[in-house]
Design a protein around this nucleic acid. Structure first.
Lengths: 142, 142
DNA sequence: CCAATTCCAGGTAAATTACTCGGTATTCAA
DNA sequence: TTGAATACCGAGTAATTTACCTGGAATTGG
């Protein structure tokens, strides 16, 4: 039940972009350097975040990425789902692939998986990038 | 963030044993057949559940497994953790391997991972095998 | 004794993860 | 107008993890 690097890197990259949100476009290279993430790998991930509409890009010199929404409107759930797919613990309660099990007995556990899924969702859909940014800025003040 | 077959099979196997709890020891073979799980694979898993003290075994003819605790005292959390390890979404908030990240910035996300972890734990540590058994028996009545 | 069982250590094929590589397209700035 | 800096794209690959299998040894009831 671990998150893969995709989700973790994605959160870090988005947070990095959020912290430089007032400086125009942020180059992939600088994100990768600051976050110490492989540039070519991160490129893939950001590409998916772009297709999901979470960041926008500018090509060419001085290009890069910036958030396409206010920080308060980007939830960690949106980021994680883009990169990890549904965070459901088993396929039969996944939001995207509603795989139905033939097992009759397993369905008694379905409620359990639903509970787990929903409890995860309730966290990731309420925490936004703004919350994380605020926390960093509060730490810096001290 | 999917559970592997280990956790899912483990829950099903334990539930199977629970449903036959009054019939003495249940043979691995019969569990595997009923649950349609590879016998040799399940053997591994049940071995770990035994070492964790969740089931007890009897060797030799007429041997098998039975629960070593009342159904109401076996949480799905205990089963899942035995087979999957901590259900923490990232290592730095894992109960067993308290890996500490050097990344200073990542620590702002630590609270997020903790929230996710705790919300999962609050579900799996409150649901017991008894809850699942009760639900099955209620379904059968209808 | 023997058939049924658990126990155990090791191996392996398939899938997934975490990347790399090489190239193309675009754009700013000198 | 050209070149450096960037995003974009598809394919390939090494390492790791998963989901098993195999062959046996130990134990026990009938």
């Amino acid at each position: 039940m671990r998150l893969s690097t995709r989700g973790r890197y994605g959160i870090r990259a988005m947070l990095d972009i959020a912290l430089h949100d007032n400086e125009g476009y942020v180059a992939l290279k600088s994100i990768a350097e600051r976050q110490n993430i492989s540039e070519s790998y991160l490129e893939q991930l950001i590409g998916e975040l772009r297709k999901a509409g979470l960041v926008m890009s500018a090509r060419g010199a001085q290009g890069g990425y910036k958030l396409s929404l206010p920080v308060s409107q980007i939830t960690v759930g949106a980021i994680l789902r883009t990169l990890e797919g549904s965070l459901a613990p088993v396929d039969c309660v996944s939001e995207d692939s509603p795989f139905i099990c033939g097992q009759s007995e397993e369905c008694v556990t379905r409620d359990l998986w639903l509970k787990i899924r929903d409890s995860i969702n309730s966290v990731i859909d309420t925490v936004t990038l703004k919350d994380l940014v605020d926390k960093i800025q509060k730490n810096e003040k001290k």
